[in-house]
Design a protein around this nucleic acid. Sequence first.
DNA 1: CTCCAGGTTATAC
DNA 2: GTATAACATGGA
Length: 230
Amino acid sequence: MAGTEEAPWLHQHLAAGEELEPILATFPDDAPLRSAVARCRGLRLLRQEPWECLASFICSSTKQIVQIRQIVALLSERWGHSVAAPPEAVVNRAFPTAATLVSAGEGALRDCKLGFRAPYVLDAARRVVEGRLDLEALAHRDTPAAREALMEIHGVGRKIADCVLLFAYGRQDAFPIDVWVRRALSQLYFPRARRVSAAQLESFSESYFGPYSGYAQQYLFHYIRLEAGR
DNA sequence: CTCCAGGTTATAC
DNA sequence: GTATAACATGGA
């Protein structure tokens, strides 16, 4: 997850995070983007631990953000090892390792409200444990190759792969398109179109935002959610 | 009760 | 290539 918001323990990540505002200089004439940046001051990209990031986003499909947090908290409370945390922290356990989740089994994962995502998380965990997926090695591969490797996991498509690339590996050329970003792109860049296909949005983001697409995605995501909240 | 949620997959034109 | 249903679960 990335954001400007709430959890106190995020502050260290935010403080250490990269300034995203160079995007302003890259797109000086993009009114929608400038507006999004203006309303989302202080936004930073997180750099999450890859396994936690991957598993969390596999849990995210067709779930509300509040529910994703709940699932991650449940998994951590049940199987995560205890870690030092400030007293106000909601959870004081780390996210469980892949090996732990493999031994927990599918039924136990379903008990944590994963539903049909349980076998997906299990497939990812098995690949990591068995060495068929080397998360550390992904850091040394280019973005398309790393994306392809992630998408071999059952339950990981383009969107989740791009989330991991962006939030765990810092690949700023990754551009996860979820329902919110689809909404933002359609509204801001294709206002006349009745319907814009996924392939169309994908090729637009690549050619238009290029190497900064990850920055842009974060601003557009938070911007459109702020809009929706009013 | 119906609709939808930081999607992906299998199946069918 | 594009469209649609199914997949668990719970909040709005």
